[in-house]
């Protein structure tokens, strides 16, 4: 990420501009559009860069520092690029007592990531532990990008990875 040398292509042009304009009608303040705007950035770019934060700030009449403060509060906004398949394994108590730690290890091994939070050399995978996914009756739930997979056990991990496009 060399940053300054690359030209930044804005997100909020064309359809996205229309979309955010339309969305803002729901709220009495522009600031309320911040979480949705950040989601749009992440959908389009895969992560939320500093330049994107500056752009969002301009669109919503906020400061870039304010936007960064909000981005950094929430765990789901990526402040750096992540693997094409972002794998979150729930390890909170109800899943831990059913062996979630073994599921984590299976993902680390089969993706080649080896360490939590580190993207695999081929750029395909990032594995993290996540706090409660709200699917405790289906332990262990694993979220890969926007999809939640229920009842994951270590032996299912290779099949799940093979099925990712």
């Amino acid at each position: 990420m060399s940053g300054h040398a690359e030209a930044y292509a804005p997100v909020f042009v064309g359809k996205r501009k229309e979309e955010i304009t339309e969305l803002l009608k729901r709220y009495p303040t522009k600031m309320a559009g911040l979480l949705p705007a950040l989601w749009m950035v992440q959908e389009d770019r895969g992560w939320v860069s500093e330049q994107a934060m500056t752009e969002v700030a301009e669109v919503l009449e906020l400061t870039a520092a304010y936007v960064k403060g909000v981005v950094s509060f929430y765990t789901m906004y990526h402040q750096h690029p992540v693997g094409k398949h972002f794998i979150q394994v729930c390890t909170t108590s109800p899943c831990l007592c059913n062996g979630a730690d073994k599921v984590v290890n299976a993902f680390l091994e089969h993706t080649g990531c080896k360490e939590l939070g580190i993207t695999s050399a081929d750029g395909k995978y990032t594995v993290i532990e996540v706090e409660c996914l709200g699917a405790c009756g289906f332990s262990t739930p694993v979220q890969i990008n926007a999809d939640t997979i229920e009842n994951v056990t270590p032996d299912k991990v290779p099949v799940i990875l093979a099925g990712l496009k």
Partner: peptide, 28 residues
């Protein structure tokens, strides 16, 4: 009017006033 507002990963936003802050575009 009924709208969906999507959170972004923060348990504390289930606390009612934190949820309001978050809806308003602030830290929860």
């Amino acid at each position: 009017n009924v709208y969906v507002h999507k959170g972004a990963g923060a348990y504390i936003c289930g606390e009612e006033t934190a949820l309001m802050e978050s809806l308003e575009g602030k830290r929860g």
